[in-house]
């Protein structure tokens, strides 16, 4: 910082520093937790749009609303977006679990922290793949 901090915000460390880290798994999952959190905001917007589409169709304000929503949400590109959102959401979910474990004061040994980071990352990916595998296997999603 070039000039002395003068506001309360100036005392905060700027993190995560994307440029200064040498790669290690806890640094990677930390950055990923932030990225997946931001990506999940898109998911919240999509689900809110789904609810609005149901509401507008059911109330008669805009009877085509649900069809319009599906024309995006059920399209191949829409499915690709949903896949990305479930991946981000599940990684953020398991990452959040990792943070809650650390917040309880557990798993701070470097080997434990690394293991937790790996398990949460792989767990999030596994949940996503399982979710979509079952969707395809039950015929709910067809390409």
């Amino acid at each position: 910082m070039s000039k002395p901090p003068s506001t309360e915000a100036a005392y905060r460390p700027l993190s995560p520093h994307l440029q200064v880290w040498k790669f290690h798994i806890t640094m990677f999952t930390s950055i990923l937790h932030r990225a997946t959190g931001i990506a999940s905001v898109v998911g919240a917007v999509m689900v809110a749009a789904w609810l609005l589409a149901i509401g507008l169709t059911a109330s008669g304000h805009c009877p085509e609303a649900y069809t319009l929503f599906l024309s995006f949400a059920a399209s191949p590109f829409g499915l690709f977006v949903w896949f990305g959102l479930t991946l981000a959401g599940f990684i953020h979910l398991t990452g959040g679990l990792r943070h809650l474990i650390w917040d309880m004061g557990l798993g701070f040994k470097i080997s434990s922290a690394n293991a937790l980071a790996w398990w949460s990352l792989l767990g999030g990916i596994a949940l996503t793949l399982a979710f979509w595998a079952v969707l395809f296997a039950t015929g709910k999603v067809v390409l």
Partner: peptide
């Protein structure tokens, strides 16, 4: 952007707007 009040306000407005859309949709349905 530690000194940006504008971004913090936009964030608040955005979150309230998404919440309003979702709750409105639930209510109408």
């Amino acid at each position: 952007f530690p000194n940006s009040r504008v971004l913090r306000l936009l964030n608040l407005l955005f979150c309230v707007a998404v919440l309003a859309v979702a709750l409105g949709g639930i209510y109408l349905a």
